[in-house]
Simulated scan of single mutants.
Amino acid sequence: MTYKPPRVTLPIPSEKIDGQTVTFRPVRDGIDSEVSGIIQVIEDANGFNVNASYVVSQDPPQSHIYWFDQSEIDALARSLLKEKRRILIVDDDRESTHLVKILLERTGGYLVLEENDAARAYHSARDFRPDVILLDIMMPETDGGEVAAQIEADPELQGTPVIFLTALVTEHEIKAGLRIEGHQSLAKPINIPELINRIEESLPRTS
């Protein structure tokens, strides 16, 4: 029998949902843990279907498409209307990035995308359009300085604040105003309250 995705009514305009990166639980796939995916809105004469593709395996790479039902779409819309700040964290340490993601998203004010491959960081930034980029300096193959240079060379991304994460400097040096390549920095291990302060300081002021 052919699977028929749920028909849904969008509680907010489709352009406010389509293309958004969200965190969700694909419970009807038998997964009761949070995953991240990019929403795709499909419209036809009968209404809307909404899905997101999420990673189920890294080796080999494998993804799955999850179709949202009405209650899930309503919850996602409520979450998106809060206008969470989009944070891209680039670090080859998967455990570290995932912990930072959990702790930031737990505050309710941030939507965090993890990127553990520095070579893909620029493309992730292009797709995700973050408000702030958290960037580890020491990574294999491509270091944080190279990624920052790619960001700065892109007219659409060059204004995005970058905060370097590094174990190469001390917290005392950071508090003394040390900047790396003109960017703010934060000493590892990361102190979450201090990280939140740096993120908020980096964001444009609103009237």
Results as ranks from 00 to 15, higher is better:
R7G: 02
L80S: 06
P6R: 01
P5F: 10
G109W: 01
I196C: 13
S124V: 04
I102T: 13
E72N: 04
A119T: 11
S63V: 10
L111Y: 00
D154M: 08
L80V: 09
L135I: 08
P6M: 07
E194T: 13
Q150V: 02
H98R: 14
Y122L: 12
D93Y: 03
I17K: 01
Y66P: 03
E34C: 09
A176R: 11
G159I: 02
E105C: 13
I65K: 04
D91N: 14
I151W: 00
T2Y: 09
Y122R: 01
I192R: 05
I199C: 10
K16V: 05
S71H: 06
I17L: 15
N46I: 06
Q150A: 14
F164N: 02
E146C: 09
H98L: 15
D91E: 10
P5Y: 06
S57C: 15
I151V: 13
Y3N: 07
K101A: 15
A176L: 12
T107L: 14
A118P: 03
L81E: 15
E156Y: 04
D154I: 09
S96N: 09
Y110S: 10
I38R: 09
F164Y: 15
S202N: 03
F128R: 02
D59M: 10
P13E: 10
A75Y: 00
S207T: 06
N197C: 07
D92G: 10
M1Q: 07
R129M: 14
F48T: 01
Q40F: 00
L157K: 03
L104E: 05
I151S: 05
R120C: 12
P161S: 06
K82A: 15
I174E: 12
P5R: 05
I73C: 07
E201R: 11
E156M: 13
V162W: 00
P6L: 08
G177Q: 04
V169M: 04
L134M: 12
P130N: 08
K82M: 14
V27D: 09
L178E: 00
L80W: 02
K4D: 08
I89A: 10
Y54H: 03
T142I: 15
D29H: 15
I17V: 14
V90W: 01
M139R: 04
I137E: 01
P204H: 04
Q40R: 11
H172F: 08
G19E: 00
L99H: 04
E95I: 13
R198V: 06
G30C: 11
I65H: 00
E201C: 06
L113E: 06
H98E: 15
P6E: 02
S36K: 11
P140H: 07
D136W: 05
R7L: 15
G37P: 00
F164Q: 03
R198I: 04
I89S: 07
D127R: 14
V162N: 00
S63H: 04
E43K: 13
